[in-house]
């Protein structure tokens, strides 16, 4: 189980899920999640040059960007909110097998896996309790349908729009510059959102292990 990984090795699946599980990801969910980031990326590119962005023939306006942010914000709210609750309340603290940063990683991983609809387990956590069964189910439900519904709303709004042909001022959404921007937006957004929690969990775990402290 992932619990037996080295601290940094176990952090990678954690990050992959926290980025929205969009790196191929679940069938369908991976690509629509990735397209949400694409909408944000063209928006960022549009801000830089000061014009309304387009993506594959559709103008991306404020409402689409807001809906995309709404969908993307679902994961951090579920993961960080529920991890926080479980890290301070007795019913939550009864779960992890280990103390310190490793125990925190166990809780963080469970809610990340649930909200990202991944399902993998870090182990170490006794999750078959009413507290975790219930809250993890909440995370799974929100992480699924609170993303799907905004995605459908975006689909509906885009379908109603006219075709916006790419012009000389359009940001090209193929090629290395676009790929770099897309990867950058995903990593920066994920980094800003989740780095503090990773620092408390796997990174602290790694540093402590190097210094000879085990949990």
């Amino acid at each position: 189980m992932h619990d037996s990984f080295t601290a940094l090795g176990g952090m990678i699946p954690l990050i992959n899920m926290q980025l929205g599980e969009v790196i191929v990801g679940g069938v369908g969910a991976g690509i629509y999640g990735f397209l949400l980031f694409a909408i944000l990326a063209v928006f960022v590119a549009g801000l830089m040059v000061g014009r309304t962005p387009e993506y594959v023939g559709k103008k991306i306006e404020a409402r689409e960007v807001k809906l995309a942010v709404l969908a993307i914000a679902t994961l951090p709210l579920c993961i960080l909110g529920l991890t926080t609750l479980s890290s301070v309340l007795p019913a939550g603290l009864a779960g992890p097998l280990n103390k310190g940063p490793h125990g925190f990683s166990e809780i963080l991983y469970a809610f990340t896996s649930a909200a990202a609809n991944n399902g993998s387990a870090f182990a170490g956590l006794t999750a078959a309790t009413p507290w975790y069964d219930g809250l993890l189910a909440v995370a799974m439900w929100l992480g699924r349908f609170f993303i799907m519904v905004p995605v459908l709303a975006i689909a509906g709004r885009l379908a109603a729009k006219q075709h916006a042909p790419a012009g000389a001022g359009s940001f090209p959404t193929t090629g290395p510059l676009w790929i770099g921007l897309l990867v950058g937006v995903i990593l920066i957004l994920g980094g800003l959102t989740f780095l503090p929690s990773l620092a408390l969990g796997p990174i602290a775990d790694h540093v402590a292990t190097r210094r000879g402290q085990l949990f």
């Binding site: 679940g26 369908g28 969910a29 690509i31 629509y32 995605v151 885009l158």
Partner: peptide
């Protein structure tokens, strides 16, 4: 559940592909 995910992806693809349409 797999089919639901793929269905939503297709609905979004249609959003990009269709023009002045009311449905997805």
């Amino acid at each position: 559940s797999a089919a639901t995910g793929i269905a939503i992806a297709f609905a979004l693809f249609r959003g990009f592909a269709r023009r002045q349409a009311t449905g997805i």
